[in-house]
Write a protein that binds this DNA or RNA. Structure first.
Lengths: 207, 207, 207, 207
DNA sequence: GATGAATGAGCCTTCATTCAT
DNA sequence: GATGAATGAAGGCTCATTCAT
């Protein structure tokens, strides 16, 4: 899912280390899903990877850095996936691209990174160490939807007076999904998406 | 805003006590707005009502009970307000009633109880003391919207294949508002609602 | 030894609290004597006053504040004592006053606050939280000696080309005492001082 | 500066190892200067010699042994230098020899081993691993001064009732220097010594 | 010899909760 | 009712030391 882009040859040791880091980030993801950003504690993460708290400090210099890295990795992965979807459907009409973005987003926030929806739907409290990071992530993610919607409007495929507000509604709607949809398989998410898209598209359509 | 329903005569002392409880719950609300359910701490609540942490225990047997009570109170208040809206507009078409519910909901989650939207938009984590309570609150709140939508469908004012899913979209959309709308006055919320409703209503309308 | 100068009436509770604070500061002093500023730990201080570490935080908001307070108290007490000595001997010749200052200083650094000499004889390392505080303390303390020496020079009682350097030698000499003098009673310190003063005074006398 | 005295032929490997040990001890010296005995940490020492903490254990079996060795080396070097001074000036009067010892001592504690003065001026705390070692070092060092002073007294060059105490004063005075003298070059130390010696010698002179 | 990895013990700090006054 | 005091449990972080490679 995540991708290494370093061109220089990586030593066996480095690979091992990177693997462990991946493991830790995955564990962090799991704990975040269960506890959330406010209540996560290092002990639990360490337990999941059979380490002690102290050992985590070989890989991350602080709790904050661990969470930051975790977030970075997620954001990167999410962006990559969204981008790929756009590439794959670049010749399709905006409505199809939008539908596929919605699907990918749902897969991300329900199956892979359930805690991410929290970041999209929670007001950021003061002082929030990840504030800047989350803001950037939000706006980058926003852009995927914004661009497709703009495109649809340009071609006349979509009709709408207030595209920003519509996008926010759409965003809210899909971010709300993980709240009530549980134990989802990819199958379930795809099915849901099939039913969801027509509803959402209505907001972008003239009556 | 809050309502006492005890029929037996209440002593002066009891009234005083109830007043203090109200004060504490109000303070709790404020702190919840700033810190959220995960980071609230009793010291801060106590400070706001000029008491010490220890004194809070005269009114609530534990932190959990305080938060539970706070939630109850909020749920009660919210339900009352939603009910009143329905009473006021009982002869209006479903679309008007829906609009007014949306407005009231927005006023509640942006102006009065910003932390409530968190409860509506956060997956409930294990172990979550308030799980049952929140679920009940959610479904009660849901019912207001469900009933109006059903009514609109019955009269043919609304058209829609999957009312439950539409309601969830609508819900997500309005619960997403507090994430990006800040420093809102009632005026601002009403204005937003004017622009928002037409968009949301599209989901309930045949093309 | 320490003096309260608060004019407003103090409640019984406040007195109790102040007493406990005094106790804690005294315990801190003891531990500082044994461990020094770098190795002192809160557990040991807490043990000495039959508290847990956590309880110390009722009286001091952090380790740093505890040490700072301790230092302040010591500096204040030392200054008061030096001032009193000067008052008592204000009509005596400079040599007598100097002798008495030396005596008082020795009593302070050997009997009452052994760790203080450490502050006078240790280079301040970076980053040293108490740097500013220690510097102020040092220079205030210096002033007592400086003034007397200047006075003696003015009246011709002392003769010396480089009073600053002499003062520093004198300072070094008396601060060196706690290094080799142990388990001292006041009697022992007074005796030592009797032998020490003639030697030190030679540095301030023409040959 | 340091001297190897092993008579048996030393293999190339052993020489390499010894060189590394020298490097480590030098690095330890530097860190001691910056952090002191209480706050020194192995990581920093290792960094300075481009090793990892773990590698240090190839050369020293523990932190304590490292510090002990460092101290030994310093003591040895200091003693050698003091001895050489005495050899060089063996035909000069005691006052000259004393002056040169003072100079050498100042060079040692200000330029080369600033942390040594700490050992001379700090009461030894319990439990102090280096206690015995420091005591021996102190008394060896003392002996240089003691001998010269005794010699001066014997020849009548010095006059003094309490030579031990005078020596201690002298000692305190010169050990106090590093506290207030910073960023010193050899030039600066020599200049200071020129001004300092006459003052100190007064303590050994009849009025 | 060198090192990355791992750890146990220790330290400072926070906080909900209890209790005597 | 109110509160100051006290605390146990927990959490983040540091560091000397060990060990397999």
């Amino acid at each position: 899912m995540t991708q290494q882009v370093e061109p220089p040859p990586i030593s066996r040791l480095e690979r091992k280390r990177n693997k462990k880091i991946d493991e830790i980030l995955a564990a962090t993801n799991e704990v975040l899903r269960d506890k959330g950003y406010d209540s996560i504690n290092l002990e639990e993460v360490a337990d999941k990877v059979d380490l002690t708290k102290a050992s985590l400090y070989h890989y991350f210099s602080s709790k904050e850095e661990l969470l930051t890295s975790c977030l970075d990795r997620v954001a990167e992965d999410a962006a990559t996936r969204m981008r790929r979807v756009l590439e794959k459907y670049e010749d399709s009409p905006a409505s199809v691209r939008l539908e596929q973005l919605v699907l990918e987003h749902l897969l991300i926030v329900t199956l892979d990174y359930p805690h991410v929806s929290e970041l999209f739907t929670k007001r950021l409290k003061w002082p929030y160490a990840y504030r800047a990071q989350v803001k950037r992530m939000r706006s980058e993610h926003d852009k995927f939807f914004r661009d497709v919607i703009e495109d649809g409007l340009r071609t006349g495929e979509f009709v709408c007076d207030d595209p920003d507000l519509v996008r926010r509604c759409l965003y809210g709607a899909i971010n709300g999904v993980p709240v009530w949809l549980t134990a989802s398989s990819e199958r379930a998410v795809r099915d849901l998406c099939d039913r969801l898209t027509p509803i959402l598209l209505k907001m972008l359509t003239a009556e």
